[in-house]
Design a protein around this nucleic acid. Structure first.
Lengths: 231, 231
DNA sequence: GTCTATAGCAAGATAGAC
DNA sequence: GTCTATCTTGCTATAGAC
């Protein structure tokens, strides 16, 4: 409520410092990797004291959250035009996944940290944690758009579950990507190019009578076991 | 080659110390969890110096590998009788998965560490790393037995890939288990109980003519992308 | 409320003497 | 093979300047 002169201009001193620390941290993370980037180095490089860095970010991992958000925003921007124009489900899905790879790949080495957190249920930075729920909901939201804005034919009871399933599928791709050492992540791209048509096909087949029982079981299982993941 | 007197007896001094450290570490890990067990504590409790502990185990994580092997051995033993007698594919699979949960659950808290390693492609402790390949091959071997000793009807070109796929499926269940905070891991057990019949069914359906193209694509994709995982 | 400087702890890891 | 001493780094704490 106490707006300073600079905050009226939109950039308080606090914001500036916070930003400076973030920029420095992301740069060092990208250049030297997460582990080799010490809090001391971030502080020194940003020209602030260690104490000050901790004043803004309660832990080194906390800086990772900023990275997530940055990527998510970039992703959304990148993908928006395609989602606004393309009606084909497979194409939409493909664009969203390849778009993610595009914005994330410069930080790939750093992405390991993401899955180290993902693996730890206790970490607030895990994509499955309650603390991550806004970021997760936003991510799932993108897949909701993928489904809703498309002309996909789909078993009606599968439809509401599909965005969450696609998000899980995306998590799987990210896991693969983290391990992908191929040039320009060719292998991950290949994985996307070849699994998207399969998903597309399977989603369509979900309406087949032979598959109804399996589909139904799968849906009820998901509803029973994973409700916590998206709420 | 320089066999000492004691190594002739089968237990060199080196072996004894190594063993002492391992026993102590596993006990402390189980009782206090991985994070709360310090190398100092392990060393002190074992009556050796910290430096000596590091002489045998180059890092704290290195001690985790010992834990893996222990679990794997126990699992194999537990599951052997069922694999020797039960012919039904679904039952075999179910027994192997529930058996794993049984031996692993006392160390569940500790299991987080497993997936932190799994997430890091650079870690030799990752189940996907070349260094883990013996342990991984052994694990996949169990699933080979599950398939080979059963009466399962299956598309012939899927058969050789199935053990690796089942291992991946198992990894997925382990990931779920690590996050499972329910009493006695009821939720994970439920996941097994309900996905095993689905797998069973889908494996059978793989022979259906409608599904042949999808199956074939899936198989060729796996062969193209994941060969490194099992070699 | 923002920031510096500095001291210090805990714990993983290493160096070098013996 | 083993130990002692030391280093590194994430993180905390405090005291004080503006």
């Amino acid at each position: 409520m106490t707006a300073t002169v600079s905050s009226v201009a939109g950039v308080s001193k606090s914001d500036a410092t916070r930003n400076l620390i973030v920029q420095t941290a992301l740069r060092l993370f990208r250049d030297n990797g997460y582990d080799k980037t010490t809090m001391r180095a971030i502080a020194t490089e940003a020209g602030v004291s260690v104490g000050n860095a901790y004043y803004y970010f309660s832990s080194k991992e906390h800086l990772v959250q900023v990275f997530y958000d940055r990527i998510a925003d970039l992703h959304r921007e990148t993908v928006e035009p395609i989602l606004a124009s393309e009606p084909d489900f497979g194409e939409r899905l493909r664009a969203v996944l390849l778009g993610w790879l595009e914005v994330a790949t410069p930080y790939q080495e750093f992405g390991v940290q993401f899955f180290k957190n993902a693996a730890d249920p206790a970490s607030p930075l895990s994509p499955f944690s309650p603390e991550s729920s806004p970021a997760r909901d936003a991510a799932i939201g993108v897949f909701t758009e993928v489904v809703d804005g498309s002309d996909v034919k789909i078993a009606p009871d599968l439809r509401p579950e599909l965005p969450r399933l696609l998000w899980l599928y995306h998590m799987g791709i990210v896991l693969f990507w983290v391990h992908d050492r191929s040039d320009g992540c060719t292998r991950t791209r290949l994985l996307v190019e070849r699994t998207v048509p399969m998903i597309d096909k399977v989603v369509g087949l979900s309406r087949l009578r032979v598959l109804r029982p399996v589909t139904r079981e799968a849906i009820s299982l998901i509803q029973d076991l994973i409700p916590g993941v998206s709420r």
